[in-house]
């Protein structure tokens, strides 16, 4: 491989990687905020994203709604469904057994229900294409070719993350969420309504997944199984430490870029396994992830 080809591959890999990585970062963020407050990973995250993508598809293509209506409506639906699942189902599961395994199984059940509904409703039976919300003309950044859509995806993802971090850091609601994540009992003592915060966190996670769905859907073929892309969000969250929000974002970009570089430099078949090898390597070297704090020891 000549040097110029090497640089071309490198630039293209990093550019495409940052675009996909920004979506993985969103998904990882959605996973981590739930994990931080519920102590259980949400295995329905991928199917929440898939469900939101199909709601948007239904509104845009089947109902011919203009994007200005369809996008906010999709986000509202994602918020309400996710918050209700937490408020009606998970609250009861958490009450009847404190074990995280039970919460995990309940989220798995939710993911089956969502997938079954999409398949059963008659829109998820055949692969579909999502109408791109921006032009797909390509432009060159130095030697790397990206589309306008790619730039919109990247920009929208960055804006979403910035808005989210602002809310988490500076608003009263964000402080309440952080408090519940750190010490639920103490948060309750100072007057935080824990049930409501849990619902809001789930709703917010639904919103972030919906935004990720709107961004990624034009770039992939839509099927009822498209939620499996969340595996890469999980990989990103793990690399970032699983309880660190900045870590999740960095992890997303690491996964996106490394996936594209592996695809260009090694082989496209190795793309599938690269994230898992990355997870194992990171966990072996740093069991708590790159940005994770010290793992606490359970009290006797």
């Amino acid at each position: 491989m000549t040097l110029s080809l090497f640089i071309l591959f490198l630039e293209q890999g990093v550019a495409s990687g940052l675009v996909m990585g920004s979506v993985y970062a969103l998904l990882a963020l959605a996973i981590v905020i739930i994990f931080k407050t519920s102590e259980a990973p949400n295995f329905a995250q991928g199917d929440m994203m898939m469900g939101a993508a199909y709601v948007a598809l239904y509104l845009l293509v089947f109902r011919k709604a203009p994007p200005i209506v369809a996008i906010p409506l999709t986000i509202v639906v994602a918020f309400v469904v996710a918050a209700l699942f937490r408020g009606l189902v998970l609250a009861k599961v958490a009450k009847s057994s404190g074990s995280p395994v039970n919460l995990v199984i309940a989220t798995l059940g939710f993911s089956y229900v969502l997938r079954g509904l999409v398949r059963g409703a008659g829109v998820g039976d055949t692969p579909r294409t999502f109408p791109p919300l921006a032009s797909t003309d390509s432009i060159m950044i130095d030697q790397a070719s990206v589309t306008i859509l790619d730039l919109v995806i990247f920009g929208a993802a960055i804006l979403t993350m910035a808005g989210f971090f602002w809310m988490f850091a500076y608003t009263k609601l964000g402080r309440a969420m952080r408090a519940v994540g750190m010490n639920p009992k103490a948060a309750q003592l100072v007057g935080v309504n824990i049930g409501r915060i849990h619902m809001l966190v789930w709703g917010l996670s639904g919103v972030i997944s919906a935004i990720a769905a709107l961004l990624i859907s034009p770039k992939i073929l839509m099927t009822a199984d498209m939620g499996s892309i969340v595996t890469l969000g999980f990989a990103a969250a793990i690399i970032g430490g699983f309880n660190s929000l900045p870590g999740a974002v960095v992890g997303g970009f690491v996964i996106g870029v490394s996936e594209n570089l592996v695809g260009l430099f090694i082989s496209s078949r190795a793309i599938v396994v690269a994230p898992f090898v990355a997870i194992m390597l990171v966990l072996i070297v740093r069991p708590q992830g790159l940005f994770g704090g010290r793992t606490s020891i359970k009290k006797v």
Partner: peptide, 18 residues
């Protein structure tokens, strides 16, 4: 409806028979 029923079974079990 295989997936929907399967998922509902899991959810109901975790809610009422943990």
């Amino acid at each position: 409806y295989q997936e929907v029923i399967y998922g509902l079974i899991l959810i109901v079990f975790m809610m009422f028979a943990p």
